[in-house]
Design a protein around this nucleic acid. Structure first.
Lengths: 137, 137
DNA sequence: CTGGATCCCTTAGGATACTG
DNA sequence: CAGTATCCTAAGGGATCCAG
């Protein structure tokens, strides 16, 4: 990256976008959003505020460690709020912020894509694997 | 999970979706799409077919190992095609399939969200971190 | 109930060297 | 040029125990 030889940054595509900063932004957001639990947590919270163990049960297989870490990260990024009721036993509620809600939108679009195209992907995968098996055998 | 006390599975949200299989589909797709390079590669290929080293340069910092792995996965999932021209030196072109192109759409929606809201996220992060610093100090 | 701390294993992923 | 193979480190993430 010390010397670029020919101006690689020049956008080629007419209607589309390809600013240098965009990719950074996207991959940064995606590494948050794309981790193992974030989306599940966010879309679960899309149903309304939930307590820690409610989330845990709703998500099924998440470890409490990962749930804590995920929620902390989401809180840090301003996507959820964490409200502690200093009762005994303690009660903590998590809720999407408006920023968090706004994330539901692109996520749903991806979710729609996923449901629609997963069969195609799985078939492609099967074909690829069997083709591979043929040449390997 | 042995005894549910009160029917947790009942959907609460009216217009939204929460089928059990959906989450699996979404997180499965997201673990493909959300990995470190997939989106970058796909959106780079959105500009048109590219050769291996073209991609490498366009992506800047990817290792050739990761590029190979990413491309293989994308090919397996039917998102890109790999065309080998048996010349010397060899020439291999990668191109999005129509399935791959269709993925650009939700990705762009996420990308738009990312560009629009990254400032808010960063500010939230800053606030969170300084607040943490205060109580830690 | 919420969640921090620790242990430990698995995976992701970069650097490098080698091949057709 | 376009990979494959190997090595190695860091991060992801589960299980478990401890504490307010």
């Amino acid at each position: 990256m010390t010397r670029r030889k020919k101006q690689e940054g020049t956008p080629v595509l007419p209607g589309k976008l390809h600013e240098p900063g965009d990719c950074r932004a996207i991959s940064e957001v995606l590494s948050r959003v794309g981790d193992k639990w974030t989306v599940l947590v966010v879309s679960t919270l899309g149903q309304g505020p939930k307590r820690f163990n409610e989330l845990r049960k709703a998500l099924g297989s998440i470890s409490q460690r990962m749930l804590t870490l995920t929620l902390r990260a989401l809180e840090r990024d301003g996507l959820v709020t964490r409200t502690v009721y200093p009762t005994i036993p303690p009660r903590v509620e998590y809720e999407l912020t408006s920023l968090g809600c706004s994330l539901l939108d692109p996520v749903n679009s991806l979710s729609t894509w996923a449901r629609k195209n997963r069969p195609a992907m799985e078939e492609a995968r099967r074909r690829f694997d069997t083709a591979e098996g043929k040449s390997a055998a």
